[in-house]
Design a protein around this nucleic acid. Structure first.
Lengths: 184, 184
DNA sequence: AAACATGCGGACCGGCGGTCCGCTTCGTTG
DNA sequence: CAACGAAGCGGACCGCCGGTCCGCATGTTT
């Protein structure tokens, strides 16, 4: 990749973030993103393929730290931790991510509305949760339960719950459901 | 309402159904609906206000029987039945509704994506489930758990689950999660 | 039949995601 | 350094969509 391409790519991602923070998930057209990045619209599409691609990459970037934490041993998130605690810790972490990136979650959802089950980040999260549910609650349909648990972080639901009580309220509610499920 | 207005209203609803059955939830623009109904586009908007309004009414129509069943005593769905059984029966019924109206569910979701929590049908369902969860599992955040349970009928998830096993598979998975939750 | 309210259709608008292509810039090679 | 091909760029352009508007038609009432 040419150096100007790399620079532009970064500029576009940062511009998208700024617009999300400033105006929420609505009215973020790719024209605007391009303008804010000081770049032509074609450049946005060349780098990211589509609106969907842009928000997928942005989410992947924001989720990178979590993805790494999941794979490195030694924390309650990493391999080696007992599945139940590992799952609860992961959900806690997701709640934090959702809080810090509500607008991005919303935009990403909207952009991936068509077959959301092909988003790489969602797929990773789902595989992770499925495995942990299967280990901690063998009686359940783990795949289905994993979708159900992840649905807690739907942007609208998360916003609604966090409106009274912030991320802690979301964490508590999710934990309540998760613990109930694992008791099975 | 003038008689021709009533007639057109019906024609539009039927046309929308036909298009949904024929082409799925995608590519159903209101231009197409209007054309299929043999009506001008303005008429669609005068009757239903917006795309959202159209699909909300269509869903309300398809959900009417269920809404009635919920309120009339004597069945496992109606008042008087024990909350746990009443909830499970309701979820079973919703699975059937989802199966018979997958395309409509998808279109409705897409149309109500902005603040989905203001859709009258969803609100009714949510209030119902919340009350039953509160009665059957006092320890839980009932409102939150209700959103979680209803998320099982997200069109994409439902389609994905029903792809192998049809509505019965969906019913079984939902029931598994619901029973686990109620055990709390 | 006349007069009024209601409803109608479809041209029109602004905005969007996505494409295309002539021009510019980068970086490599001799 | 000159020059050349590849990679990238920008923004005009396209088709489509949700939504609006208003001159005309149709139903209703007296």
């Amino acid at each position: 990749m040419r150096s100007d391409a790399t620079r532009n790519r970064e500029a576009i991602l940062r511009a998208a973030e700024e617009l999300l923070d400033a105006h929420g998930a609505e009215h973020i057209s790719l024209d605007r993103v391009a303008a804010a990045a000081g770049v032509g619209k074609g450049t946005v599409f060349r780098r990211f393929g589509s609106r969907t691609g842009l928000f997928q990459e942005l989410l992947a970037e924001r989720a990178a730290a979590l993805a790494e934490a999941i794979e490195s041993p030694g924390s309650p998130l990493g391999p080696g931790a007992p599945p139940r605690e590992r799952l609860l810790a992961f959900l806690d972490e997701l709640a934090g991510l959702a809080e810090r990136n509500l607008a991005l979650f919303a935009a990403h959802e909207r952009a991936c509305a068509a077959d959301k089950y092909r988003d790489p980040t969602y797929l990773r999260w789902h595989a992770h949760v499925t495995a942990l549910v299967a280990a901690a609650a063998p009686g359940l349909d783990a795949e289905f339960a994993a979708h159900t648990l992840l649905a807690s972080f739907d942007a609208d639901l998360a916003r609604h719950v966090m409106a009274e009580g912030g991320a802690d309220r979301l964490r508590a509610s999710v934990r309540g459901v998760a613990e109930a499920l694992l008791r099975a």
